[in-house]
Design a protein around this nucleic acid. Structure first.
Lengths: 150, 150
DNA sequence: TTTCTATTGTGAATGAGTCTCAATAATATA
DNA sequence: TATATTATTGAGACTCATTCACAATAGAAA
């Protein structure tokens, strides 16, 4: 099934209504692989002439999270960042503290060791947060940083 | 050198003043191994008759972080939790999503793999956040949970 | 002591996110 | 298609953790 048809039918199946606001917010979040925050989404839509209230943006984000379209991330900045799940593979994040670039990584050995640590304590792992903060090769001069801040 | 002497002399060496408020906040944070938040500290001090403004609590926490006495933690709850560094060994956190219990763990193999992941991307690791959210053995009935909420 | 200025308390401000409620619009039903 | 039902929206008030501005206070140097 077409990805957007699925979006529409999940809403319907859950007794939720299909509105242009929900479609626009989902389209906006899908449109890049960056990890943007709620206000980025709100402002991008506004700039594109689709003004939607902040309340609706936040409410729709929660709907998208609940039905598995997106994921909330928290990098200790005091606000949530978003990530769509079109490519559903699990991954963690490597964040450059200098330029802000975010790289996704997976290491199966780490995944296994996490499960083992939980088992040792008699716990059952439900989810994890694993973030590596680092300096990219270009520190202190970084072309990525330059490109994002001009 | 006595641990508190060191606290006093670091303040002095940095041109900061030694005040009873700073001493009281540091004492309060040192007093347990729990991961409390700023308001817990504020309220505990108040209850002990040492009323210090919230602003001062927050400012002092930043001083304690800056000079390596404590560490800020963020478990996605929208507020910071604190941890003193009297026992300086590095560790990560295993959090029970049911009862809230927090267990500290270290796994050297995970530590090494993290460094390797960074190297593969040409990054230099500066710090990391690794949190395992899990259910403890007692789920859904947990004596720890009972003990904390009555 | 006096002086200098870091620190404090107060209360206002901030910023992300949530809530309330009347108006609106998507969908079910006739 | 018209009408009824009720989920959703927008606006702005509100919350909560944290920060800020500024006048008053109090460490510490001279």
């Amino acid at each position: 099934m077409d990805e957007n048809q699925e979006f529409i039918s999940i809403l319907r199946a859950e007794g939720l209504r299909y509105t242009w606001q929900r479609q626009a917010i989902w389209d906006e979040i899908k449109s890049t692989d960056e990890h943007r925050d709620a206000d980025d989404i709100y402002l991008s839509l506004k700039q594109a002439g689709k003004t939607i209230s902040r309340a609706t943006v936040y409410r729709t984000i929660d709907v998208l999270v609940k039905y598995g379209f997106i994921r909330k991330l928290e990098f200790g900045e005091g606000r949530m960042r978003l990530e769509h799940k079109l490519d559903p593979a699990h991954h963690d994040h490597l964040v450059c503290e200098n330029c802000g670039r975010i790289i996704e990584f997976v290491d199966d050995r780490i995944e296994d060791l996490q499960t083992a640590v939980c088992q040792q304590h008699g716990f059952q792992l439900t989810r994890h947060v694993h973030q590596l903060f680092a300096r990219c090769q270009a520190y202190p001069d970084c072309e990525y940083y330059q490109s994002q801040h001009r």
